[in-house]
């Protein structure tokens, strides 16, 4: 191998990085799968579980979100508080601080109860981020409403402002 050649150096950097990263990843206690599992989508309300023993995050549609709202399931707003104050799904909880958010959630549900996380819209990403953070904190039955606030408002569903 000619180490003066940029191309050979690139090959070497890539090879070392691939080998090191995969070996380290396999040796971690929290090994990351090489390919991400896609979040499963729930098609009908019958697939909703009130309690879950194994942690799982599943995606729900606007129709199911509405049904669960009618059943008084807890909504967690993953947007920042400034947006929450301007308008949110009624009775949803929100806090920029994760520990305070969990305290608020635990006033309403226990750790294995189901709840719904949402953010602005399908592209915001913060609902998914928060769902994983809450899963790491021990919550096991998490529903992700990806349509979020925008889809909720577009469907003329009830809102609360405070």
């Amino acid at each position: 191998m000619n180490f003066s050649s940029s191309l050979h150096q690139i090959y070497l950097y890539l090879t070392i990085s691939f080998i090191t990263s995969f070996v380290i990843n396999l040796s971690r206690t929290d090994t990351l799968p090489i390919f991400a599992d896609q979040i499963k989508k729930i098609e009908e309300i019958g697939q909703i579980n009130e309690k879950m023993s194994n942690p799982i995050i599943r995606e729900i549609s606007i129709d199911i979100a509405k049904d669960l709202f009618d059943q008084n399931m807890l909504f967690v707003d993953a947007r920042s508080e400034e947006y929450y104050i301007e308008g949110h799904i009624p009775k949803a909880v929100c806090n920029d601080n994760l520990d305070l958010l969990i305290t608020k959630m635990e006033e309403h549900i226990s750790i294995d109860d189901g709840f719904i996380v949402y953010c602005s819209d399908d592209d915001c990403g913060s609902s998914e981020e928060l769902a994983y953070l809450l899963q790491e904190q021990g919550f096991s039955n998490i529903y992700l409403f990806k349509g979020g606030w925008k889809q909720w408002v577009d469907n003329n569903l009830p809102i609360e402002v405070k």
Binding site: L32, F35, A36
Partner: peptide, 9 residues
Amino acid sequence: GIENTIAIV
């Protein structure tokens, strides 16, 4: 799901 592969390497 190759975001994981990239996040590892």
